[in-house]
Amino acid sequence: MSAHPTGVFEPKVIAYVCNWCTYLGADLAGTSRLEYPANVRIVRLPCTGRIDFNLLIKGFEVGADAILVSGCHPGDCHYTSGNFHARRRWILFRQLLDTMGFDMNRIHFAWISAAEGKKFQHVLTDIVEQTRRMGPYAAYSKICEEVSC
């Protein structure tokens, strides 16, 4: 992701979304022309069940200032239960990140359906604005720079 020419901090947000709900919700935001900040890079996956935790770490490694994971509402999963499996993993994984001192304000989870273009817009705007206020995620970029051995 290229730095903004003016040198003003532009948050880098990576969104891991499922193909059937949130990706379509983002499509709907598009067809409805609902504007939101251009800081988000969406990675399309078939289902939230497919999103493994290493992807979140990888996201921070490549310099994300915030990460969103989003999929179908419970009960609406295209694959019936992928999101339930994902949710259970997230409950524990969040705790691990918290223990390790990750900034939990930079990891977001949402249910956004294909019909919720507005919600997609609001959630993304909110995340970008919040991240903008917090500034770059220096803690993790520091980790990524340091060579220990």
Partner: peptide, 19 residues
């Protein structure tokens, strides 16, 4: 998982091991 002998790689490994 980043395998580099760096803090980044160590973080990634220990997050993975614990999870």
């Amino acid at each position: 998982i980043s395998t580099s002998p760096s803090l980044k790689g160590n973080f990634a490994w220990h997050v993975t091991r614990a999870f």
